[in-house]
Design a protein around this nucleic acid. Structure first.
Length: 309
DNA sequence: AAGACGAAAGTGGTTGA
DNA sequence: TCAACAACTTTCGTCTT
């Protein structure tokens, strides 16, 4: 699979002015603002196939992943070679029993990790996440397993939590709703395990920036590039006016987008915006009102309205 | 008839005693 | 551990286009 196989023209406007944002796994058309999702997602590739004869697929992610080394740092060796010779008969059988246990545990962990990583990849593909995020999530999950944080939680929910955390760290935030839809785990549960895992692992995550959502939402709403940049502008002003702290970033992003759309005569209903952003109309209204109040944007909107552009 | 607006009550999470 | 609290949701009635 090579990059050259990818779309070169924007399917929306036919423009060739495509910009590949590697980090976010997005391709953005500079002409119409459409976000073309990364087409590089591959479905159902087993992790274990790396050492097989399929040389091409091996190169897909570069060198074999370190996270496929399932028991790294895990499983204390029970006795070295020959140690057991020094033991008496009773202890010797105990030794063998322990070793058997260790074996069982490590293969269980290995099996679990294989399953988990497959699940991780499935959800990651579904959400069209870039490789770097999947890797990060795999790292987080592996750490979580090593710390025994999965105990008492379903594997799937921890995977979802790890993915959510990885997305945030890479500034490609997905909403809990999206994770929930992709993984089939309840929103609450994902949030809980996400908080638990990040706290236990000491992973610091900055509050996500509303601007990171704009491209995706705008694309879903088929809004122009101008509207997008306008909404980013609005967001910047909003941050200066301290309207953003403590509020849900998706709500703010949605409101900024809604306002920007109005200003460019690309009106979308509050409901439409609310749906793609995963918030309610009420939240948009509240943010929207705050934006109008504090940023004095009324004039511009009224102007557009009268012009009926 | 649909969308926008706002009030009121409820939910789940955070914080501080 | 509990209560106060802020943000957000749900629901519903009213106004506007």
């Amino acid at each position: 699979m090579a990059r050259r196989d990818m779309v070169r023209k924007c399917p929306e406007c036919g423009g060739i002015n495509l910009f590949w944002n590697k980090e976010k796994g997005e391709i953005v058309c500079k002409d119409c603002g459409l976000v073309i999702e990364d087409k590089m997602v591959d479905f159902g590739q087993e992790w274990r196939e790396f050492d097989s004869d399929t040389g091409q697929s091996k190169r897909r992610t570069g060198a074999p992943m370190t996270y496929t080394q399932f028991d790294q740092g895990l499983g204390t060796e029970v006795g070295g070679k020959g140690d057991f010779m020094k033991l008496g008969g009773k202890n010797r059988s105990k030794f063998f029993r322990l070793r058997k246990w260790q074996y069982r545990i490590s293969t269980a962990i290995e099996r679990n990790l294989k399953l988990a990583l497959a699940e991780l990849k499935r959800v990651g593909s579904y959400l069209k996440l870039p490789k770097s995020v999947e890797e990060e999530a795999a790292r987080i999950y592996t750490l979580a397993v090593q710390r025994g944080l999965v105990r008492g939680r379903s594997m799937e929910s921890v995977v979802a939590g790890a993915l959510y955390a990885a997305c945030r760290r890479h500034d490609v935030p997905r909403t809990l709703d999206e994770l929930s839809e992709a993984s089939g785990i309840e929103k609450k549960e994902i949030g809980r395990t996400y908080r638990f895992v990040t706290r236990e692992l000491g992973i610091t995550i900055l509050p996500s920036n509303p601007a990171d959502y704009i491209a995706r939402f705008a694309s879903a709403l088929k809004l122009s590039a101008e509207t997008q940049s306008k909404s980013i502008e609005i967001l910047e002003q909003a941050q200066k006016a301290e309207l953003t702290s403590g509020r849900g970033p998706t709500g703010i992003a949605a409101a900024a987008l809604y306002v920007a759309a109005l200003m460019h005569g690309e009106k979308r209903t509050q409901r439409e915006v609310a749906d793609v952003a995963g918030v309610t109309e009420v939240t948009i209204r509240n943010r929207y009102k705050e934006l109008l109040d504090k940023l004095k944007l009324e004039k511009e909107i009224k102007k557009k309205k009268k012009k009926k552009k």
